[in-house]
Design a protein around this nucleic acid. Structure first.
Lengths: 204, 204, 204, 204
DNA sequence: TATGAATGAGCTTTCATTCAT
DNA sequence: GATGAATGAAAGCTCATTCAT
């Protein structure tokens, strides 16, 4: 008996899946991947260890799922926001703003996102292709904006691919400083700092 | 009977210690900390597992030692190079150059350095204090240069602490792209890109 | 759904716990603590190594549990039997009888009990306090009987604390001889020997 | 060039052997057999680990040697003292006195002696035959005295073998109490306690 | 579907013993 | 003879994963 295209089973499944991922995010963020045990996650989710395996096929799988979930959401927010801006300068500002704000609001996800950079980069082959793709997609989105900016003369001639990654690096760096408590400024101030630095660096 | 201030024993000890660390660096770089086993390191060094424990008291100990070793060397190179430059602009250029070149030349170390950023940041308390200190020392060195630049009017008024970290982030980002094979340009080109971006961002 | 105050889980847990302890007792008795491996115990219990750790948190823990188990049982039997006797002479006789018979019937436990005396005595600090307490409790029980015997004139004035320990030493000595096969006499004969010796030594 | 029947080499060998055993006794007494490492012993003796193996063929071997050394000395003192007494009562008194005093004076040896009883008894097959023999020899010595006492009417008809062991058990028990600090009395008092108890128990 | 007991491979670490110097 | 670096066999313990209930 499908309801709105989904059977009752599927609804329950989705519910449990989301619940588990929520628990997993907290645990992974706090302890990191290796120090987290499947039991930790199960306990945090209020289910038994065996149940975890009904919804995810391995501990690593939960991790990728958590990463994917955040990246998807972040990507959606970026797209929505960029669509509402016209000028390249505003789009870039929006990109920077939205990312910093997203990570600021969900530090658990940032911890996962960030620590994955380390190991995922050390062993790119172990990372599912779609995760790498999502990282790259973000860069490409930004790169497209940069290219348009160059076309319309707002941005000087630069290597857009490298510049796009560089901007992401700056953003990540700021969040790290915030999460580590090195930055005592308010978010707006940090956002402006990045935007200012970037714009001076790339403006025509 | 000491020779040149070192006994035979000390020479052997240093030799083995270095040899083991060399092996450890390769293994850690390739597999990351958790996936590396002490046996891997021992095998790579051509000794037995027990021997490893004659020179390092734990697997984690080897890791910190490897990290410390690279950071020390990098720090020394930076200091030497900065000392030979006068103008803030040249010092900053030198800083960027030397770091990129150092990591370019020793990618194994970079992998360790970089992946440690992830976990060390997730669990700062597990990292020996001297390691954190070495990371910060680098930032402080750069910050001092920025401050002098501001004093002599070459650099505009900016938050030097944040800017220093931002520059390091850009550098790290470029290396990641190189190591991952995303950047096909030659090192010089990448170095110039960063220097250009940075200088525009901070110049008066 | 609890049955008779115990859930299914608890029943299984108790069953396994007892089963494991039985295996552990055999292994420890045969090989001693150090020569016994957790794998030995697991194999003897017909389970895998990991299972052992579901019920006991360490090898040492199993050992203390085995010791405690026997001491508790022995203590209960002594109390029950002493309660059914009135005259100090009969109580002392009962004490000697019950201990010798208990150890005679459970030589595995005696081996554990006895070998623990050695190491527990060499490093008293590593022994859980409750184990030491149980050893002392036995001595105190006997001492109380001796004191009553003195009060009622059946036993001469002696140092009851030392005498109590001395009686326990004699009992232990007899068991050792039996277990080592040095004594070819039947149990009754050995019991009478000890009782006779003790009574002559302490009677008024 | 043999001197007094011994070559220089042999003298040195004996010296080192004794020196090592002294160190071993201290270490074994303090930590017990298993917790003691060969390195502990070597360090305590001021030599290197390898040297230990020039004089003893294994860690266990040192242990047996330490045990044998003490037993031999104790045996000699007992023989000498018994020879100087005539009456069975005095011989028994002397036996008890000398053992308690010997152990009182050399608690390190007692710890080894005592803890060995535990494991040596649990695994009699692992104990060298000569060690068991030395234990038995002591009992036999005492038994002979008891038999003579019975012959001359000073001691009642008892099982001399069991009585001999029982007396040893009482002695051991007293020492344990002293070493553990349970007995606050002076040695003389404890000696008299045992002698009194024994004599009442066995006197005709 | 949910459970959690059971598994066992695999990890780090220790240390008695050997042997080239 | 003396050394101590090197060995490698074990051992205790963990935890991702499975599966009978």
């Amino acid at each position: 008996m499908p309801i709105l295209g989904k059977t009752r089973k599927e609804v329950i499944k989705e519910f449990r899946t989301a619940e588990l991922m929520g628990a997993a995010r907290k645990v992974f963020a706090e302890k990191g991947f290796h120090a987290s045990t499947v039991d930790d996650i199960a306990t945090a989710a209020g289910v038994s260890k065996g149940t975890v395996y009904l919804y995810y096929k391995s501990k690593q799988d939960i991790y990728w799922a958590a990463l994917k979930h955040g990246l998807t959401e972040l990507h959606a927010e970026i797209q929505a926001r960029l669509a509402s801006e016209e000028a390249p300068e505003n789009k870039i500002r929006a990109f920077i703003e939205i990312k910093i704000q997203y990570f600021e609001a969900d530090r658990d996800f940032f911890r996962i996102y960030f620590s994955e950079l380390g190991s995922g980069f050390t062993h790119p082959d172990q990372m599912p292709h779609y995760i790498e793709e999502m990282y790259l997609e973000q860069a490409r989105t930004l790169e497209a904006v940069l290219q348009r900016g160059i076309q319309c003369g707002a941005i000087r001639e630069i290597r857009t691919d490298t510049a796009a990654v560089a901007i992401s690096d700056l953003i990540r760096g700021i969040i790290v400083q915030r999460v580590l408590g090195w930055s005592k400024k308010d978010v707006e101030s940090d956002i402006n700092f990045v935007i200012d630095l970037v714009w001076r660096g790339i403006a025509a």
